[in-house]
Write a protein that binds this DNA or RNA. Structure first.
Lengths: 136, 136
DNA sequence: TATTACCCTATAGATTTTATAGGATAAACA
DNA sequence: TGTTTATCCTATAAAATCTATAGGGTAATA
């Protein structure tokens, strides 16, 4: 299952990407438009800013805005920040690799084999999709 | 993340598929070979039996065994039983479709668009992989 | 300096996952 | 026929994770 965090994060990003002007948008405006709890969204946007996707401005007229062009934002990077590793098991993760305690030999493990294929299929999608693709 | 239930279920299935003779194998033997809690595995095997993947025999000499040839067992069916829907959001699920309360229009929803592609990529893998592929 | 709106961490509440308990049922075999 | 063996089945406890909120801090604007 996709977490609400990821879902809301993606919705916020698409909302910002759809803006004509690139001026800051308030959290509350995004929250209302996308039916998201404002406080929850606040923490999500914060992590997106810390990850380099968003910029922010404080005070009156403040809010969040996209730093990069939507065409330059790959879903693979967004998903890793919001949802975590692409792989469904750590033993096939490219960025968060860990051995399984219970598994004596990865190469003869059927789960490993299957999950490698699943990982690759997902990587393919996320690498070839940008934020722009989601709004067009 | 892949749940332990799914991981253990897949391991049990591959263990059974690897058997030369197709006589019943006791839960405890699978549990020990694959480092799984016996009682937890018991509930997993039960659901695999109820779903038609396994047969069982009670009493001395009893245990679980595969009903079909590993080449006839598609991962798509196994995954749906163990892990649930393939789709990451109900609004793109083929078998468990539900609308999102928060989303006024699926067709203009970026999350929907992305998750359709992810679903299709995963379906492709799970449909084209059999239990036999995992042990060979 | 008052107001606005993001910053940040901790933690409460809800849900799901993981695992166990404990007896019921059925088959094998002496 | 009675004992042993091993699955059947449901409820529930324990743990982990996800979702959401609280509540004050900080910086920018006017």
């Amino acid at each position: 299952m996709l977490s609400k965090k990821t879902k809301y994060g993606l919705k916020a990003l698409t909302f910002l990407a759809k803006q004509e002007e690139k001026k800051p948008i308030q959290i509350i405006e995004i929250a209302q438009a996308e039916n998201i709890s404002q406080k929850f969204l606040e923490t999500i946007l914060l992590s997106l800013r810390k990850s380099g996707f968003l910029g922010s401005k404080k005070g009156k007229g403040g809010g969040y805005y996209l730093i990069k062009d939507p065409k330059e934002i790959q879903m693979i990077a967004v998903m890793r920040v919001l949802e975590g590793p692409i792989a469904m098991v750590p033993c096939v993760s490219l960025n968060f690799y860990e051995t399984c305690d219970d598994c004596p030999d990865e190469n003869s493990c059927g789960v490993h084999k299957l999950m490698m294929q699943v990982r690759d299929a997902n990587l393919e999608v996320y690498k070839n999709t940008t934020l722009y693709d989601l709004i067009s």
